[in-house]
Write a protein that binds this DNA or RNA. Structure first.
Lengths: 217, 217
DNA sequence: CCTACCGATCGGTAGG
DNA sequence: CCTACCGATCGGTAGG
């Protein structure tokens, strides 16, 4: 019964609720909830059509409260995109590391990259990258430049794989254009893929590899 | 000097300016100018970020005047999309008819379709189709259904060509998925292609065909 | 097609 | 993080 006696010595939360200073404004999961809510609504309705009120309401906040966590709507959009890219890079690196022991040939490596890309793009909770892909117009050019840095980190592992396939005669287009065309093919799937019906992500990856990669000459 | 004498008998415009009734509200080129202006701004800034005031100002109109030609901003957006699809279908049919005499094989037919698609997507005055592709969220589901009708008209000539290539062993993925992946590849070019530098549309079409189509098995 | 205008919504802020 | 609020912008309309 110690929770009902001795006012100042409650044991439920040893020192009251955790203190939040201005400096730790960024941690905690309310911010993460806002990010997820924003990603969802930015994706479904677009940046301008999704109001900060919508986003706040979706996590049970009042209309002014998102601005306690983000200094503007644009900063919230950028945070969604950056979070999406960081997570995508991390997942890609894990996928590559997981397969490294098997010493996969270039074709198998491409399959790993493509499969992971579909996962990042279409898997559960995959609103962040589509927002980045389809709302780029709504960020500043400085933000775009920062994102381009992360994007080139993401694309880095693709180039040597495509070069190897090109050399082996299994890729019939010039590497730079091939990369753009392949990414387009994959990225566009965010427009039509429906998780609840049709092909699995494995089927998709198989079809894409079959389409792009030929037998060695 | 007959233009300065005889008030009621001017010869400049025989019967005064052409009468406009409510019924012919849709003809004339002011409406076309609005459509082009809207396509340009919807593409550059997105549907919600481009105001009807911007669109009107770009053709020298006042803020309320677009609503004389279109009953709402949404109707203007849909008109841009519909005009884009009708024009694309027409151009595709002309391109196919022009080549029909040469009795092209399936691979050459695909090359014609792809080349024309890049033209529609990236050529001069090509804002209409990108708007249709990237602002689909902003129209009603009824409008989307109407557009889907036109889109399937546009896609119709692609299927037999892809089927033939598949049968000939030159297309390694199932036709339905291949079509989606190929369109994605092409459509995404609207995001990165810069008319002023890099590859020509012919180069692009060559690279795409090379990437997708293999030698007969 | 212009003038003059309205109602609604929205991003953002002050102060607690 | 909430309450209460503001200024700006925007789509749209009446009336000519």
């Amino acid at each position: 019964m110690e929770t009902t006696v001795g006012g100042p010595t409650l044991t439920k939360r040893p020192r009251g609720r955790p203190r939040k200073t201005v400096l730790e404004r960024d941690d905690g999961n309310r911010r993460q909830e806002l990010l997820r809510s924003a990603a969802r609504l930015f994706r479904r309705k677009g940046f301008h059509a999704a109001s900060t009120r919508d986003i706040a309401a979706a996590v049970g906040m009042q209309s002014g409260s998102p601005f306690y966590h983000f200094k503007s709507k644009g900063a919230l959009l950028y945070a969604v995109m950056e979070e999406g890219m960081r997570s995508a890079i991390e997942r890609q690196q894990r996928a590559l590391a997981r397969a490294a022991a098997a010493a996969p040939d270039p074709c198998a490596q491409l399959r790993i990259l493509v499969r992971n890309h579909f996962d990042v793009l279409l898997g559960p909770g995959s609103d962040f990258i589509p927002v980045m892909l389809y709302e780029a117009r709504s960020i500043t050019s400085r933000q775009r430049a920062l994102l381009a840095e992360l994007q080139s980190q993401y694309e880095a592992p693709w180039s040597p794989v495509l070069e190897a396939l090109r050399t082996a005669g299994q890729l019939r287009a010039e590497v730079k254009l091939a990369r753009l065309l392949i990414f387009g093919s994959l990225n566009w799937s965010a427009q039509w893929y429906d998780r609840r019906k049709g092909a699995s992500l494995d089927n998709l990856a198989d079809a894409a590899i079959a389409l792009f990669i030929g037998d060695a000459a």
